[in-house]
């Protein structure tokens, strides 16, 4: 049976807006979008339980995350796995209307106007300047720096969007610089 991909993607359009609602337009519109910025901040400080959940996922036995005494002796606090950088600014699905903590920008890569009806992440590069810890609260400033011409891939035709983000802790110190590339594409039909 032929999979009606367009129909399925349309059916979950709302849920697929989790990182941000896709904006539609032409490649020319997208080029005009280059240079746009967005800010995000964590709602609550990094917490140990989330750190452990993440280590549980990748089966990371690093003492820094499991032995609080060891970590506190060394750094004064339990470090956060550097890979979790963006985890704490994932947008909430629901909050009470009166609740105003945190600032969750839509992920700016999703806001670039283009024809593609879905996305997949393809490349990530982070340069770290300092460790960050349980109890820290980070903010990110993000910018669209490039949109490629249309490319044909195994998944479908689309554009590669490059963004950069600067991550700072609550003292304003730069802890990480991130460069990310996302592929915004039209899913290939079964008979294509």
């Amino acid at each position: 049976m032929k999979l009606d991909k367009k129909k399925i993607l349309e059916k979950y359009r709302e849920e697929a807006s989790f990182h941000g609602k896709l904006d539609y337009g032409t490649y020319e519109d997208a080029l005009k979008f280059v240079g746009r910025t967005a800010k995000s901040e964590m709602e609550d400080p990094i917490d140990l339980f989330r750190v452990k959940q993440f280590c549980e996922l990748v089966e990371d036995a690093n003492l820094a995350y499991w032995d609080e005494e060891f970590a506190k002796r060394k750094w004064g606090a339990v470090p956060c796995p550097p890979a979790m950088l963006r985890v704490f600014v994932m947008r909430p699905i629901w909050r009470p209307k009166y609740y105003k903590k945190g600032r969750y920008s839509e992920w700016i890569a999703f806001k670039v106007p283009l024809p593609g009806d879905t996305v997949i992440n393809v490349e990530n590069e982070v340069t770290y300047h300092a460790r960050f810890f349980v109890g820290d609260k980070l903010t990110a400033e993000e910018k669209v720096v490039d949109v490629s011409e249309e490319k044909d891939t195994a998944l479908g035709k689309g554009h590669f969007i490059t963004t950069v983000a600067y991550w700072r802790n609550q003292r304003g110190e730069l802890v990480a610089e991130e460069r990310n590339v996302i592929f915004r594409f039209k899913s290939r039909d079964e008979d294509d």
């Binding site: 999979l3 991909k5 367009k6 399925i8 993607l9 979950y12 849920e15 697929a16 989790f18 990182h19 989330r50 959940q53 993440f54 549980e56 996922l57 979790m84 985890v87 994932m90 699905i93 879905t118 997949i120 195994a154 998944l155 479908g156 899913s187 290939r188």
Partner: peptide, 24 residues
Amino acid sequence: IQNVVATRDFFPGHHNPEYARAQG
């Protein structure tokens, strides 16, 4: 699913097989 829980990444490609298949 553990991946979704640990990272709170609710993009449907990570928890909804129908959506993932529509993505190819």
